[in-house]
Structures are given as C-alpha cells and as structure tokens.
Design a protein around this nucleic acid. Structure first.
Length: 262
DNA sequence: ATGGTAGCGTGGCTA
C-alpha cells in the first residue's frame, strides 16, 4: 500500500501536477493540505476519473483545506475542529486496517513570541490540543497513521542550519518540545527518520523566496508521516519526491511517500 | 538587518 502526503498549495491550480504525480507514482491514498478551495470547487470528478473514487475533503475560501482521496474504500470521514476554530485543518478516515489522520498545523507567523503573535499562540495551542486528544481517544496499540504538514522541523538535521533557525518559527525549542510531546502521545514512529539516518539532512519544503532553491538548498522538513507501533513492522519504503520542486509552477512543499506491506 | 515569492482574488492576508 502506497500513501502520499503533499501540501499542494492550491489543488485547483496544481491539478495537472497532481495528475502527473499520480501517473509517476501510482499511490493508493493521497493526502493533501492547503487545497485552498471550498468543497463545491474541489476537483472531485476529475480525481474520480483518475481512479480515486473514495474522497473526503474539507476546505474553505482562500486558506487551508485538507483532503484524502483513495482507491481503497474507507468509512465516512470526520472533520475535527481544533482550538475553537472551523478552519479546515484536520480530517480523518477509517480504513479496514488503520485509521488515517490528515493534518495541516498552523504555520505560526513570523515572531516567535506568544505575547505579541497570536498566530504563534494558535500554533502552540493546536499542537497541545492534538497531543491531549490523541492520548484521550486512542492507545498506542491501535493501528493509526498521521500525515501532513505539521509545520515543525524537530531535529537538528531537519533544517539547513540548526543554529540560524533556533529563533525561527518551525524550529524553535518550544515548538520542538510540543511537537515531540505530540509524537510521544501515541508513541508515533516518524516514518521518514525510520528510513533516513538522523545525521543526514532531510527536507520537504524550500521557500519560494530563494532564487534557486536547489543551489541555496535552505530547506526544512515540515511534512511528516507517523505510524503507531503496530504498523512499524510493515514500513517497506520511503521517498521524498524532491524532483517535483522543479516542475513548472511548483508547490513550495514536495510530496512525501511511504509504502506499507499491508 | 532586510527582503525575497506565491495563492487567492482584487486588497491584504497568509505562508
């Protein structure tokens, strides 16, 4: 079983790129973030024609938005409102062999100070709520998968410069602490780091604000696939599809792929 | 220290 997660940064604008990704990798399940469209404009029919008959999406005008599209049937999905907002950042669906959560955690703005930056407060509260909610509703012996743009790069080699990013939102100690606490809530296994050694640089996002993303290579690992311990033995493959960052009109995030022998 | 680019949807927010 092949699962892809991708912050697509507008599913309508990049539908042709999504189709190309499907042709090249043939995933069973695709999870998208930042679809940036209300549900009535989600390209549901087009993706059904591509083979993804089972769909669950939740979007809004202009911002955020998450979607799960699948060739494999799943039970009716859920929408989860987080920290009192209806801003389309968390959906889940139930497959026969596991439950899947698709997350778009708030980016958090620019200033890493909760007293002056409401967006950073929102991000930290969101992560806290997720950690509690996972622990309250599940146990780590249940087969679960969480994917998405978690907007935190927790490890030293998840960013191009650990020292220079210590005070930059996505890699500050307070976020890393909360992110790690969320990860520990159900003993989530970080699938990318299961395959990529911790001392090796590993990125899924490169800013638009660099003239040449590949040359400067100032990336961060913001996108993640986590599995609970029962699924760990079935992890069989992993790929970060960096070449997609070079397609015309790319997203600033690249797709992350995991294979499970299920 | 600053500014750099992109999407949505047409002015300014968010990333």
């Amino acid at each position: 079983m092949r699962i892809i997660t991708w912050n697509i940064n507008s599913v309508r604008l990049r539908l042709p790129l999504l189709q190309r990704l499907i042709t090249q990798t043939s995933p069973d399940i695709i999870c998208l973030q930042e679809t940036k469209t209300p549900d009535e404009h989600f390209p549901a029919d087009s993706l059904k024609e591509s083979g993804y008959e089972y769909q669950h999406f939740h979007g809004m005008k202009g911002y955020n938005g998450v979607a799960v599209i699948s060739r494999i049937p799943f039970e009716a999905g859920k929408v989860h409102n987080r920290v009192g907002k209806e801003d389309c950042r968390h959906i889940s669906v139930k497959f026969p062999k596991f439950e899947l959560h698709n997350l778009y955690i708030p980016a958090g703005g620019d200033e890493p100070d909760i007293t002056i930056n409401e967006k950073f407060r929102h991000k930290l509260d969101f992560i806290d709520e997720m950690a509690e909610w996972f622990a309250d509703h599940y146990t780590s012996d249940q087969p679960m998968i969480t994917v998405g743009d978690l907007n935190t790069a927790p490890l030293e080699h998840d960013v191009w410069s650990h020292k220079q990013l210590l005070n930059v939102i996505s890699h500050t100690p307070i976020e890393v602490e909360k992110h790690t606490r969320m990860q520990n809530s159900l003993d989530w296994v970080d699938a990318s780091r299961h395959f990529v050694p911790h001392d090796q640089k590993c990125y899924t996002w490169w800013s638009y604000r660099n003239r040449d993303w590949k040359k400067s290579n100032r990336g961060r690992r913001l996108d993640h696939i986590w599995v609970t311990p029962p699924l760990k033995p079935y992890l069989s493959g992993h790929d970060i599809l960096s070449h997609v960052r070079d397609w015309e009109k790319p997203s600033d995030h690249v797709p992350l792929l995991v294979d499970l022998d299920l």
